[in-house]
Design a protein around this nucleic acid. Sequence first.
DNA 1: CGAAAGATTGACTGAGTTCAACTGAAGTGG
DNA 2: CCACTTCAGTTGAACTCAGTCAATCTTTCG
Lengths: 217, 217
Amino acid sequence: MFSVLCAHELATISDNKSCTLYKKGQILFHEGTRPLGIFCINSGKVKVYKIGTDGKEQIIRIAGQGDLLGYKAMLAEEYYPVSAETLEDCTICFLSKHNFLETLNESSDLNQRIVKQVCQEHGMLVDEVTNQAQKSVRERFAMALLKLKDTYGLDGHEDGPVEINLTREDLANLVGTATETLIRLLHEFKEDGMLETQGRKIRIIDSRQLVKAARMM
Amino acid sequence: MFSVLCAHELATISDNKSCTLYKKGQILFHEGTRPLGIFCINSGKVKVYKIGTDGKEQIIRIAGQGDLLGYKAMLAEEYYPVSAETLEDCTICFLSKHNFLETLNESSDLNQRIVKQVCQEHGMLVDEVTNQAQKSVRERFAMALLKLKDTYGLDGHEDGPVEINLTREDLANLVGTATETLIRLLHEFKEDGMLETQGRKIRIIDSRQLVKAARMM
DNA sequence: CGAAAGATTGACTGAGTTCAACTGAAGTGG
DNA sequence: CCACTTCAGTTGAACTCAGTCAATCTTTCG
């Protein structure tokens, strides 16, 4: 994201950011609080979620390496609409509101890049709403797995198959279903040869078939 | 939205925009096509929708007076993720991509205003996803009615009660349910004294009770 | 090791979809 | 101006996907 900046601007950010090691399960920010800066994930995975009326988590996305968090609420001048919690030990940089806005002011390139990013994310959410409203749980689960494959694929330890490492509950809250339903579907997918499981870990074998199951065209 | 501009900039836009009368049912732009400019609704209502995998419309929002359409896809440098169709006769201004981007470039105030707007809309969609995933059809319908009350309230013929004028099918596609289900719920709400209907028209009587039915807190 | 959290399975229930039939309203072309 | 078609709205009945509840098993971790 910051690749559009010139050397000088990058240096400013570097000087002002603070990099921290977060343990698994720590909260970066809480829904309903005021944004004080932005987070950039150096390594690890973070779940971004919202609490629904009856206390159930709805996971909006799983963020990974290179993802920027918390800037949209800041630019909207609103409280965070979501919370962010680490799913593993993470290294995450923090840049204060002041420094971020200053950099943003000085670089119209960065500005453009951010606008583009937000607009793209908006488009993705429009898709998400449509899918949530019209697709079956089975289809949504298949889509979620394909997205996670991308997210977890970036870790790229080797060129080996991607391993998704989330609790069943988190998976269910990402898809928007009950944990039990998700487990049953996982079974089905396993029987159909689309994936393998090893304890918590899910390894995708047949993406092609998942695409079909998701009816993405 | 353009209120942040100075007189000179406003004049430029005014000179370059073209205002057109659209008949009910006309398409402003089609999902999957390239954005050529932005639309600003002067009067009338427009439905913004996406076609799901099996051809069903998912209405993302009903836009009204003063709303800007089609700029996010432009700024994302992507094709339109949605279509826009007039629900009544409308007066709508068009500003070419070139002119819009130029104005945007010249006014950092407008830029900031746009960024803020997009980020806010993003937050609203996050809510939408959560609601779609976790709330019952009944609750979602109640919420939709309350939102529509705002949209249709702006017409403000008098201070009289707001009348929502949408087909049952459009309402269902907004809520994300089947037309039959929506009709049955409409009946329930009528019996509970939350609203009245006159043919197609829906008049909201008891917002307070709707808020309760939506379990918004 | 033992407690707590996560995972799994079965049985049951019900909200909401689908299908089908029918009514009413609104065009529209002869 | 009327017959005819078409589209929107409504209602009933059957069905099904997915949620809930409860019990059990497994893993993890202090």
